[in-house]
Design a binder for these strands. Structure first.
Lengths: 245, 245
DNA sequence: CTGGTCATGTGGTCACTACCAGTTAGATTA
DNA sequence: TAATCTAACTGGTAGTGACCACATGACCAG
């Protein structure tokens, strides 16, 4: 990561500056609760306008790296374990962050007609063809979740089992192959008990408590793209969120 | 809500404009997926600069009311049931939004010495006095959660049982009496089973599944203020989050 | 009919300028 | 000494002006 702003770089300047500042925080060059240079000082240091400085700082504030105090200065947030705040992460990204090796077993991958309940959530007519993917999610090779995804894709936009095999991250495939960028999701969490089939697949006793997550994923244009249902083993999974006002 | 910008109003203009635009969306004057006037048009309509217009729109985009498409325009998001996105809400606000009548029974309210585990989460020395509040939370008069809060307050900053009786919202008391504004929280969710005592209090069978939430609340200056543990009845509570990238 | 070009409208980025609103520390005053 | 004032910081709000990147539709050439 460079230490100066390159005006010929394709990246916008506020973006470059944000990276530089983030780096200084992550490297520990700037310690928690200490102030960073004032906006007017940064203006001189990096030879860019205050508008741009503020835009860079805005980003870092929203991401939880910095906080401002009117009249006093801008300060480094005390670092928490989780870097990004309430970020939308895929299952595999999520586990990697916790230092657990993600893995998966694909149980099936096929086209189905949208059931009424799911069609409603995806805001499409009942019966529209959807790509359904059933997977067992593994953490360090032990089952921790049972995941069923329904993707609203056009028939041309096929995803093969080998596509999935590679990265494992469905979100990366959506982004790279179809230019669908996951940008928002609504998620509910509740508690249920394992049915006999679920118990077998997750290698737990029947009736063991599970965390049930249902998520609807939206693309850039706020169109619903995916409906996912995940059953997590209660004894192996903890859900984390950072909430902001 | 006024329909024009008042330069003498104490509220900043971008704030006033955001309110006006939000109102038009909520009133249905601007329909989902339709475009709103361009930034240059709004400049003329409200006689304020594009800088300010963009700041107002930025807020609404982050709150999920609008989305932008480069080169095409700014559009109204399809409205979801929940208005604000991933907002930090108190228990009572949360229930009210769902149309459930919140209630509570205060089981105890007293000062205790911080146990090691909690002291660590609140980033204070073990043994520091903390205000502990134990409550049974009710929804439409049926128990749905068992809540234990530990508040890092100075001994002068007392909260009495009658304070709590009134609003019921601890967050409002913190804000109004002590100028502590809840601005961020880290929360984990997991599954457990009810112990005999918990079962009695929540009026459920022993061993019934519960949703266990642990939350650390931070104030404006990112200092930890409260540690809360809530046990939700699995059959009566569903947790909702909106995630953003 | 097809493909390219181009003008125009949109949001995105950036600089410069000005003034307002809290905070703080040092000078001043009672 | 203690309270007050003030100047010099800090971030917050706002206007103006410029140019870039992307989308779209009208037009034209093949």
């Amino acid at each position: 990561m460079s230490r100066t702003i390159d005006p010929y770089n394709a990246l916008p300047k506020y973006n470059q500056l944000a990276s530089i500042l983030r780096q200084k925080i992550e490297d520990g060059e700037w310690l928690p609760r200490t102030s960073i240079p004032s906006e007017r000082q940064l203006e001189v240091i990096y030879s860019i306008s205050r508008t741009t400085i503020r835009e860079a700082i805005d980003h870092l504030v929203r991401q939880g790296y910095l906080y401002r105090e009117h009249g006093r200065g801008t300060f480094v947030s005390p670092q928490k374990l989780q870097k990004g705040l309430m970020e939308l992460t895929s299952f595999s990204e999520d586990l990697l962050k916790r230092g657990i090796q993600p893995g998966q077993i694909i149980r099936s991958l096929n086209w189905v007609d949208a059931p009424a309940k799911i069609a409603q959530k995806l805001e499409i007519p009942t019966g529209t063809p959807l790509l359904r993917i059933e997977r067992i999610r593994l953490g360090d090779n032990i089952p921790i979740g049972l995941q069923t995804s329904y993707l609203a894709l056009s028939p041309e936009q096929a995803i093969s089992e080998s596509d999935m095999q590679g990265s494992g991250s469905l979100y990366r495939i959506l982004q790279e192959k179809f230019n669908i960028i996951p940008s928002e999701a609504d998620e509910t969490l509740e508690v249920t008990l394992a049915t006999p089939e679920e118990a077998v697949l997750l290698e737990i006793p029947e009736g063991a408590p599970l965390l049930l997550s249902e998520r609807v994923l939206f693309a850039q244009n706020r169109k619903p793209v995916e409906y996912v249902k995940i059953l997590y083993r209660g004894d192996r999974y903890q859900y984390f969120v950072r909430l902001t006002r």
